[in-house]
């Protein structure tokens, strides 16, 4: 038995509660997420992003 509190967006229903805040990846987005040349660029980008957070966070080991 399943009830109305189970949300199912596998089919888009216009004007439904779920459709009010709808977002789904396009075919291009799904493709680019595993397109290796682009992901190699992203890998470098991610590491720089993480490094930035780490440098900021680790600067907070401070004397009070």
């Amino acid at each position: 038995m399943e009830d109305k509190s189970v949300k199912d967006l596998t089919e888009y229903v216009p004007y439904s509660k779920e459709a009010r805040s709808f977002m789904a990846p396009t075919k291009y987005t799904v493709f680019i997420r595993t397109f290796i040349p682009w992901q190699l660029v992203k890998f470098i980008y991610y590491n720089l992003k993480m490094l930035r957070v780490l440098l900021k966070g680790h600067g907070r080991f401070m004397d009070t």
């Binding site: 680019i32 595993t34 397109f35 992901q39 190699l40 992203k42 991610y46």
Partner: peptide, 9 residues
């Protein structure tokens, strides 16, 4: 972000 590079990380 979401992608393959995230898995590599």
């Amino acid at each position: 972000d979401i992608g393959l590079a995230g898995h590599w990380v």
